[in-house]
Computed example of a mutant assay.
Amino acid sequence: MLYRVEGIVIRSMDYGEGNKIITLCTETSGKIGVLVRGAKKIKSRHAAMTQLFTYGEYVFFRQNGGLGTLNAGELIDAHAALREDLFLAAYASYACELLDKTLQDEEVGSFWFTQLKACLEGLSAGKDPQIVIHLFEMKILQAAGYGPSFEACISCGRTDDLLVVSPRLGGKLCRSCRHHDPAALQISPGTFKLLSLFEKMDLRRLGNIEVKEATKQELKTVMRHFMDMQLGLRLKSRQFLDQLDKYEI
């Protein structure tokens, strides 16, 4: 059966002497693997369609839900700037690997696709990459069914001014319920405000916002705890990103 889909390349690997297999995140068909014959050859007309972060229209033949074979393709946005900048490439690679490891092959939903598309566009547009990525992480948690709640106590539903969040329980704790998680994190008002904003905001609505460095560091710590506790993924791209962060000025 012939398929025509818009997709973003979230993984690309060599296959044989001249071929590549790409994994696409699509809006209508979930996550799909596609074989691109001759993609490694110098004169290949499909080579550009196999580059990581590429957004395009892909036409491929697929039978019985297996690996597709590319027939034709048209670039919509190559996101070349992301591959040319080491730091942006690291952030974008993390976003793609995170979605790849979280999204199952049989899962279909436009939310995954639209949020990844917005993430890559935000990085390309020069928005703060750390803020973009943490918001994307929040959307991934929500799409996977582990979205934290910050509006009221996750245990009893009461609201108070205690700024304590529990990555293990999945959200805010009030004074009466803090004992349920001794490892819960006390955070600053600025970080709590961002987390509350991220909970409700679609990544497509993110503008250019300035966040204090101390707040960003605390936000990174909190989101790292949520991601590790709720998803427990070990990603090579995150390890590389952590190494780069040590040298970023």
Rank of each mutant, 00 (worst) to 15 (best):
R4L: 06
R37I: 09
G147V: 06
V9F: 01
K127S: 03
L241Q: 11
E121Y: 01
A78W: 00
I209P: 04
A95Q: 04
K20W: 06
L2N: 12
R158S: 11
V108C: 10
L194H: 01
G126V: 09
C156L: 07
F111H: 13
G145W: 08
H46K: 10
S188V: 06
Q104A: 10
L194R: 01
R158L: 05
G109P: 10
K41S: 14
V164Y: 03
S196I: 04
D161R: 12
H46Q: 10
L82C: 11
C174I: 04
L24R: 01
F226Y: 15
G190I: 05
G66I: 12
G30M: 10
E27V: 08
L244N: 13
D245V: 12
R158D: 08
K101L: 09
L35R: 13
S188L: 10
G66A: 14
Y55L: 12
E17H: 05
A81V: 12
L35K: 10
C25L: 12
R205A: 13
P182W: 10
F111L: 14
Q239E: 15
A92R: 03
I154C: 05
P182R: 11
G190W: 01
G73T: 02
N71C: 11
G157S: 10
I209M: 13
C119K: 00
I32M: 08
E199N: 08
L116F: 05
S155L: 08
T69Q: 13
I187L: 13
K236R: 15
E6V: 01
G66S: 15
L244K: 13
E27K: 15
G65S: 14
P182M: 12
E57N: 06
L70D: 03
C25D: 00
H134I: 06
L116P: 01
D14E: 15
N208P: 07
R4T: 09
L219N: 04
F240G: 07
L99C: 08
E84K: 15
H79W: 10
V165R: 04
N64G: 09
P182Y: 07
D242A: 12
G126M: 11
F226E: 06
C96V: 06
L169T: 02
E27P: 08
L116H: 02
D228E: 11
